[in-house]
Nucleic acid binder design. Sequence first.
DNA 1: CTCGGTCCTGAGAACGCGCTGAGGACGCCG
DNA 2: CGGCGTCCTCAGCGCGTTCTCAGGACCGAG
Lengths: 218, 218
Amino acid sequence: MRLLVVEDEARLAAALQRGLEAEGFAVDVARTGPAGLDAARHGEYDAMILDVMLPGLSGYELVRQLRAEQHWLPVLMLSAKDGEYDQADGLDCGADDYLTKPFSYVVLLARLRALLRRGAPERPTVLEVGDLRLDPARRRVTRADAEVTLTAREFALLNYLMRRPGQVISKIELLDHVWNASLETAPNIVEVYVGYLRRKLGRDRLETVRGVGYRLAM
Amino acid sequence: MRLLVVEDEARLAAALQRGLEAEGFAVDVARTGPAGLDAARHGEYDAMILDVMLPGLSGYELVRQLRAEQHWLPVLMLSAKDGEYDQADGLDCGADDYLTKPFSYVVLLARLRALLRRGAPERPTVLEVGDLRLDPARRRVTRADAEVTLTAREFALLNYLMRRPGQVISKIELLDHVWNASLETAPNIVEVYVGYLRRKLGRDRLETVRGVGYRLAM
DNA sequence: CTCGGTCCTGAGAACGCGCTGAGGACGCCG
DNA sequence: CGGCGTCCTCAGCGCGTTCTCAGGACCGAG
């Protein structure tokens, strides 16, 4: 699950990132309104956590812009409750949920999970490819109706692959989305985890495309 | 979509090439400043990804030179953020966008797409010539709806040929684009791989034009 | 027909990618 | 503290891929 956090306050952004990553999300952070908008447009996130007060472009304007461009990414808005903006405004402009600062981290998580469960309307909440089934909300994977237990990392990897079955996905892209790693890190870790998945899901489910990447058999 | 990557660090260059090719781009790599400049002048690319630190000619100088010659190829610059040069310099000398190392691959992709969007509209991702079909994203080739498995090099060669069906393409050009090879390497390797392709695709698909090069039958 | 050059192809060597098992670091829980 | 599970690093290995090479086929010119 990929999240975009748009927050200019460095400390809060870092805390959110760390916390959410501990939950198994892949988190990207943008520091300004325009940067956030750009990332949301192109990044294929599952949800966005968005501060209202941002340099360059306010959270409200950002969502309005995004919706105008037909992006239906779930948005969870954060704002100081000092009155200038209020909750109605936030929901009005197209956000899916709303939280006022200071908020409890547990509440944020709960709201976020709820959002993700709803998902974008056109995307099914349960991914199915062949006899594989993956439920992001319940964090469950079954193969031919038999449950398969995966570690957080394995789950994240499979989740990513199942969103683009049949396509070849490069190791860098996997490193980037599943590990949030830079280009310098050794791609061997991907090979290792593909190995783990193969052991649990069956040998020929994940095809190696030599010199390029991996493909989930359809 | 054709991209030119100018980067001297071998590992990063290779990673970028793979990742971007998996996205369906046709990627050429140049290792030095002068080589990059030369390629940019003649290559008809849709965009260029350009490192700042390069042997022979810096990225800055390269762009400046290019712009002075009236080439308006979109340029995405990469640089270490260790201060010596800064972002303003980069944009100043004519680059269209700027990224500091280490950067995330998603961000690079997003910025690149944004750059390309300003330019020409995207071409269809699947190439078709006769009953041959090549899908760069899925890394798949079919001949009369039957799948053909190709090695990386074979795929790269066919990919290049299929972008200009009916045209005669010289061995040097193929060496240059498919192998990224210097002029010293023996052109026999091209003959060998044309042989491999003929074996897999059918004898009369690739025509030899003696003394000149090869042509993909339309 | 002969000759020079170009192209084709099979054999095999060299290389490097990807796979795997072993094991260390770390955090969590009893 | 010790046991456990997860995550990751590392080195060795196997094998597919890539490339070199040499001999022969083919083609065009004279």
